[in-house]
Nucleic acid binder design. Structure first.
Length: 221
DNA sequence: AAGTATACCAACCGCGAGCGC
DNA sequence: GGCGCTCGCGGTTGGTATACT
């Protein structure tokens, strides 16, 4: 995609920029033999004039099996929005909940689509508030955590169109007992699911996100 | 048709955590 | 404890594609 010569930078000894089909093939073959670890040595053994980091990135974001590309579905988008509300810019955690999607892809999708969408929603929300302001009852004073939670719920409802049942506002949701790191917790969520079962999985996740707060507490995210 | 602006996304960079020596 | 190495993460860059004027 990007000519090697144009992506400047420090190390002139190694290739930079777009990967060629041949490089991809070499990398995949090396990983088949040596495994997806020790990226520096994988790069060397594959005969690639690339740094280990670059090889890892290429594998993780492009060559890995079961990668889904393009066309983020409405369901996936909804899930990204909600997870982002809960987790912030922790793209790898969010990606971990979306089978076949990479953190880089979700980050790009967020920056190019969703962040704008949200800004637009917030703007029209403000306008609506201004228009209806005089008839509103005086707002109860909230602690900062209350207001954060309120904002979180409000944005969530606005951006996804799904109302959050958690109206108490003093507690946060939580996720931690099911880890997001692709280890044991993932088994709880995804064990036995193939990539084809993604939609089913997403439905499950959506229900999970709507669960009553009594199931979870947030403090140790 | 040509020039310019904007959107998209692959790839890079810097940083910090974890681990072994 | 200190050092070096590897890995993973999030932010950023910049080339290409597309839309707009």
């Amino acid at each position: 995609m990007v000519p090697l010569s144009t992506r400047s930078r420090k190390n002139k000894e190694v290739n930079r920029g777009s990967w060629t089909a041949e490089e991809d093939q070499r990398l995949a073959q090396a990983i088949e033999v040596y495994g997806a670890r020790k990226w520096k040595s994988v790069a060397t053994k594959a005969g690639l004039n690339r740094c280990g980091k670059s090889c890892r990135l290429r594998w993780m974001n492009y060559l890995r099996p079961n990668i889904k590309r393009g066309n983020i579905s409405d369901q996936e988008e909804d899930l990204i929005l909600r997870l982002h509300k809960l987790l912030g810019n922790r793209w790898s955690l969010i990606a971990g909940r979306l089978p076949g999607r990479t953190d880089n892809e979700i980050k790009n999708y967020w920056n190019s689509h969703l962040s704008k969408k949200i800004k637009h929603n917030e703007r029209s929300q403000k306008q609506n508030r201004l228009l209806s302001a005089p008839s509103n009852p005086p707002a109860k004073e909230l602690s900062s955590s209350d207001s954060q939670n309120a904002e979180l719920r409000e944005n969530n409802a606005v951006s996804t169109g799904i109302e959050d049942n958690n109206s108490k506002g003093e507690e946060n949701y939580f996720f931690k007992s099911m880890s997001f790191d692709g280890s044991s917790g993932d088994e709880f969520l995804y064990d036995g699911l193939s990539a084809d079962e993604g939609p089913l999985n997403l439905m499950w996740m959506n229900r999970f996100l709507e669960m009553d707060e009594s199931w979870f507490t947030l403090h140790d995210i």
